[in-house]
């Protein structure tokens, strides 16, 4: 935007609006499957936790999601019933 546009307070060009909208949509849609490193992280966590408590691969889940302005990394581990 030129300085003149700025002072005249002209509206944003529509291509610019399109780009901003796409940035948001794509970031959101790409995060569905989570980042690439999640499977590896899950493997390693499984190995570490497994050293102390026996736990099955199916019982550990690592997810990452966006909540408002934060990325939340969530780790869920289901321990076998030890009674």
């Amino acid at each position: 935007m030129s300085l003149l546009d700025y002072f005249l307070g002209s509206r944003k060009k529509s291509a610019h609006v399109a780009k901003d909208r796409l940035k948001l949509i794509l970031a959101h849609e790409r995060s569905d499957g989570g980042p690439d490193f999640l499977p590896a992280l899950q493997e390693e966590l499984l190995a570490v936790i497994g050293k102390y408590i026996p736990v099955d691969k199916e019982n550990i889940k690592v997810t990452m999601e966006r909540r408002g302005d934060f990325e939340v990394l969530e780790l869920n581990v289901l321990f076998p019933d030890q009674r």
Binding site: K13, S14, A15, H16, A18, K19, L22, K23, L26
Partner: peptide, 16 residues
């Protein structure tokens, strides 16, 4: 139309 700001530019699409 790209020059006029009415169409996404090739740089925009590449970046996205």
């Amino acid at each position: 139309r790209v020059e006029g700001g009415e169409m996404l530019s090739l740089e925009d699409v590449k970046e996205l």
